[in-house]
Write a protein that binds this DNA or RNA. Structure first.
Lengths: 357, 357
DNA sequence: TCCCTGCGGGAAAGGGCTTTCTCTGCGGTA
DNA sequence: TACCGCAGAGAAAGCCCTTTCCCGCAGGGA
């Protein structure tokens, strides 16, 4: 690889001058030398060694991002928001997938710290795991102590800047909707127990039911991977245990799509025989058939805000932005079927069309 | 940030020794010093500066990847394959999204070269653009001249190692299937004209039709963005121009999903009134309703092979691996409707179930 | 007893770049 | 004419590591 001094030699100037021309330094250089340097760069196909530059320059520019999986639409949308702001500010993003492995998350914090990122964003659910949480916080604190900025998306653990989707309120919305439609036998297709996102959404759901004097017994909940196959499998287990279910609340859209697949395979009509609710409103939700009724989270906006927090001026006190969830009515949730409706408490409401598309 | 010499000073050893302990060098260090160093590392929360390490070490380890968009399922699957092999070999991946912008692609080649990646993989369609192609090849050649390895996925332009999905054969399969079902009025929802993937798939489609003595007039093709909304829009334009269409061949699954959305909005039953074919077989294809009949490409495998090519021993001659396409019959393609079937040439075949799930 | 060997450790030379500091030479002012 | 200031270029000091090279010392063989 050609180096800067190769370029300088070829142009007959000092490395200092070559560097100034290449980086458009504020220090003036005569046009003649400039030309010679640029010609040498072109001839040698010179590309500066990024590591050497980063090492020599003091200011850090890249931003590190840790997500569970960028190819998961939930994170893809968040990342889109992160990117938008970062690109506007000429920042490079280093994105790492933890695949929901706490150890890998810890490693990535180190890795990104080692890469001298100016800021760190952790997106995705936290864990109910004290040991891990403490370790993570130590690492983050160490990073912040050296001037790094940190923001989290959807995690309670960290005590700094945060963008929090209102998972609990979203769960509440879902629960209220199903109650309003007259459902009593509601099964829940949940993500891993250890994730705070799971428990938060579940708590909201529970609250809505209990306001109606109902309960959500553990027997009506199945925990599985937070993806399509997990949803399919949990739904199957749920139906096997309790064929009388009239509604299924999935704790994210991927699981809801898996639930729909299982229901289709078993010949159960949605929403005539059984209703399904999703969570997140990922883009594909409107394209499945029937279109998914779900709880929308402003995913892109979450990314935008987190990046803005981290790239903006630091605030003396940690800022926590809670972003509201919103119910999106489409076609998978309907009134409880006639045969079982009689037992329901409140009158079923008329279904409305999708208010958003 | 604590540096290596901070650690060394604190441990009362030389930086050389500290480095050896931290990197597990083969050179032996007494247990006592080792302990002291490790203690200092822990106390100072020391993390080595990655740029300094990369600069000091000679061998390059990371691999650069340029795709159109990782969050597009097509590339997400390919990336999964790339990751698998890379992780096995302890390589870090730097993934860049070009968003189908040729200039950005060129920039990323430079960027990755600057980051001293050991190899470079470009995935995604090439462009019908001579100027760009020449520029890209120059840059790649310059990179290869300094020992870098390059492989492409699905691009004709580059003359080195390549993994090529058989787009043309896939198009042919799609065309033959539709012909076999008796369709004559076939509309095509195509990606951007400038992409070689579009023209390759189109060429296969054309060939299948012409073998049946039929044609694919330009008037039956609509070019749009290679995504869901592009597919929806192109389908609408197609139907407006020609309401008699009995089948729509979309050149990728995202577009097919958009097509389904438009058809649903217009109250056209799939496949009873109109058939739809996709391309790629991305994971969501089986979950839309009706499940998408499509042409499968071994996406993960494409990634695996490309990474293996690039990390394996270099071959004297460029290796080109062509991976076959395969038709996956699901529920969106059926025989041409009765009213129009009379005009069709060949007898409609019976539909078979999805052979894969 | 002497020499050689080998082990454990440190000194120092890069690796490729940025940037401060220094130097030269010119034009302008007193 | 002497001096000052400044523009433009280069020298050199880092940035933080890794790794080679070298040195001192202890133990073993002759």
């Amino acid at each position: 690889m050609a180096t800067l001094s190769d370029v300088a030699r070829r142009a007959g100037v000092s490395p200092a001058t070559a560097s100034r021309v290449i980086n458009g330094s504020s220090k003036p250089v005569t046009d003649e030398l400039r030309e010679r340097v640029l010609a040498a760069v072109a001839e040698l196909q010179y590309v500066p060694n990024a590591h050497a530059q980063l090492l020599a320059r003091s200011h850090r520019s890249a931003v590190g991002v840790i997500v569970h999986d960028v190819s998961d639409p939930y994170f893809a949308e968040i990342t889109r928001g992160l990117q938008r702001v970062a690109t506007d500010q000429g920042r490079l993003l280093m994105i790492c997938n933890s695949y929901r492995d706490p150890d890998r998350e810890l490693e990535y914090v180190e890795l990104l710290r080692g890469h001298q990122v100016a800021a760190l964003i952790l997106a995705g659910s936290g864990y109910h795991d004290e040991v891990f949480t403490r370790q993570l916080n130590e690492k983050l604190a160490a990073y912040e102590a050296t001037g790094g900025r940190v923001a989290v998306i959807g995690r309670h653990e960290h005590s700094g800047d945060a963008v929090m989707p209102d998972n609990r309120a979203g769960g509440y919305l879902a629960g209220r909707e199903l109650c309003g439609l007259g459902h009593r036998a509601i099964g829940v297709v949940a993500g891993p127990r250890i994730l705070t996102t799971t428990t938060d959404r579940l708590a909201g759901l529970r609250q809505a039911l209990s306001e109606q004097g109902r309960e959500l017994p553990e027997a009506r909940i199945r925990y599985a991977e937070f993806d399509r196959d997990g949803g399919a499998e949990a739904t199957a287990r749920l139906l096997d245990a309790d064929p009388e279910l009239t509604a299924i609340a999935a704790l994210n859209d991927s699981m809801a799509i898996g639930a729909l697949a299982t229901l289709r395979a078993r010949g159960l009509a949605v929403p005539q025989q059984i209703s399904v609710l999703g969570f997140d409103d990922m883009p594909i939700a409107r394209d499945v058939t029937p279109a998914l009724t779900t709880v929308r989270l402003p995913l892109v906006d979450m990314g935008v805000r987190a990046m803005s927090l981290v790239l903006g001026v630091g605030a003396p006190t940690p800022r926590v932005e809670v972003l509201p969830a919103e119910l999106v009515r489409r076609d998978t949730a309907g009134p409880v079927p006639r045969s079982t409706r009689a037992t329901a408490g409140s009158a079923p409401r008329a279904r409305r069309g999708d208010s958003t598309s």
